[in-house]
């Protein structure tokens, strides 16, 4: 889902950059008021964790393997704003160091994965959690939100590509959402299991407003 340079037209990537830069500024301010001088070490080390977690491949049905996107996982453990920052930091590193995603498309990539995937995913998690109570509620809502976040982020990607005239929406949207509905199952299972582990070992580390 890392859009390279050249796939988006200026009328898409320029607004996406502006929204993402502004949104990131807002998140930093929000996190700064809670963590104060703890922001830097905590966000740095935890971003390194999400980066490492994305390197670990897990088996998907049919002999293929996928890796974690980690948006909802980060949001459930760190809260929406800190989660969004760590995902944005990772996307930027992947863009600059690994050329995974383009420089002009970085704004759109951050918008899809940090804002739609992580913050959007967090609110999906929060809504479902308010319906199902207790630890089961946390696990069920983390699983559903993880699946939703992957599908929503990929739909965002398809919409941006169609706005740029790169691919028609009526084909791109079902195709992207369809593929990611399958990928999302793995994301959902692994997110649920990691959250369940943390709930057992350090329940205080699961984000609670």
């Amino acid at each position: 889902m890392h859009i390279p340079d050249g796939f988006l037209s200026a009328n898409t990537w320029v607004p996406a950059w502006i929204i993402s830069a502004g949104g990131l500024g807002f998140c930093l301010k929000k996190v700064g008021t809670v963590l104060k001088d703890k922001t830097v070490p905590l966000m740095g080390v935890v971003s390194a964790f999400v980066f490492a977690a994305q390197m670990l491949n897990f088996p998907v049905i049919g002999g293929t393997s996928g890796h974690l996107l980690g948006g909802v996982l980060a949001a459930v453990l760190l809260g929406p704003y800190a989660g969004a920052i760590s995902i944005a930091v990772i996307l930027t590193i992947q863009c600059i160091i690994f050329q995974d995603g383009g420089l002009t498309a970085l704004g759109a990539n951050i918008f899809n994965m940090s804002f739609i995937g992580t913050i959007g995913g967090f609110y999906a998690y929060k809504i479902i959690k308010s319906i199902v109570a207790g630890n089961t509620g946390i696990l069920v809502s983390a699983a559903i939100a993880a699946w939703l976040s992957v599908v929503a982020a990929s739909s965002g990607c398809a919409i941006e590509l169609s706005l740029s005239g790169t691919s028609p929406l009526r084909v791109a949207l079902p195709a992207m959402a369809g593929i990611h509905a399958l990928i999302g199952i793995g994301e959902s299972i692994i997110t649920c299991m990691v959250v369940s582990f943390v709930l057992k070992v350090r329940p205080d580390l699961v984000y609670n407003e």
């Binding site: 001088d37 740095g44 390194a48 977690a53 393997s65 990691v194 582990f197």
Partner: peptide, 29 residues
């Protein structure tokens, strides 16, 4: 490795990694 049944182990690996990273961040701070 690579079987579906190993997913839980992998998830626990990630869980351990998260707890350790967080604790490390706190001591670094």
């Amino acid at each position: 490795g690579g079987r579906l049944s190993h997913t839980k182990t992998l998830a626990n690996v990630l869980g351990v990694l998260f707890v350790r990273s967080y604790e490390r961040a706190e001591s670094v701070y």
